[in-house]
Amino acid sequence: MRTILEIKSLTMDFGGLRALDHVDMDINEGEIVALIGPNGAGKTTFFNCITGIYAPTEGDMIISRPGKKKTRINGLKPNLVTEKGLARTFQNIRLFANMTVLENVMIGRHCRCSSGILGAVFRNRATVKEEQKVVEDSYMILEKIGLSEYVNEVAMNLPYGAQRRLEIARAMATEPFVLLLDEPAAGMNPQETRELDDLIVRLRDDEKVSILLIEHDMKLVMSLSDRIFVMDYGKKIAQGTPDEIKNNPAVIKAYLGEETDA
């Protein structure tokens, strides 16, 4: 197993508040890693730092893909981070609500295309070909994720579970090697959660992406992840396999509080 994303002592301050305090993490190739922790532990901030929405105060984020040089992604703009191969979904669904499902995925393809203004106006052969390919690729992605029945539906009319999956489809369209899922199962019913479970495993096996997910559904986390990181108050308090985490006293304390003799 090779490490493909390495995060070293990531720190993020908002004014006087330290939202992340020297967090280390590494993700290996083809691994599903979960990041858990009570509300307000800094999980989403952690995501926002990695994907460039916030610029971290301190720390290093390094990606090393096989066959490519190691790159630091600190301080890159979100679109450049995505171009480097880290794609994310959002905790509160952020689809392009008034665009169709297909178009949503096509936006994901944007950074892998190159046609410009002149191409758009003159519609030369390269542009037409590229557009055609974007449509086809997007459709294939939708088919894989199981959304092809909704292709031309406007995104906001989709059922909740499908919207969540569309976010994943859109992120997959950017051809990531690490997929960051922010609470993908939030608000889903058990049936949808099971489907999501299958989907995530399938993405890992078929598309060869590593997955980092934030999730509160412990059943999903325990069955899915190879390793788990636990955060509380901006600090990493534990890491290990699901079994190790289940029995870790620090984790139990963070979630349930301390046992007192009273």
Partner: peptide, 13 residues
């Protein structure tokens, strides 16, 4: 539609 999501999907704002 959504500026943040748009950037996160690789569009140069």
């Amino acid at each position: 539609e959504d500026e943040v999501a748009c950037q996160a999907m690789g569009i140069d704002k």
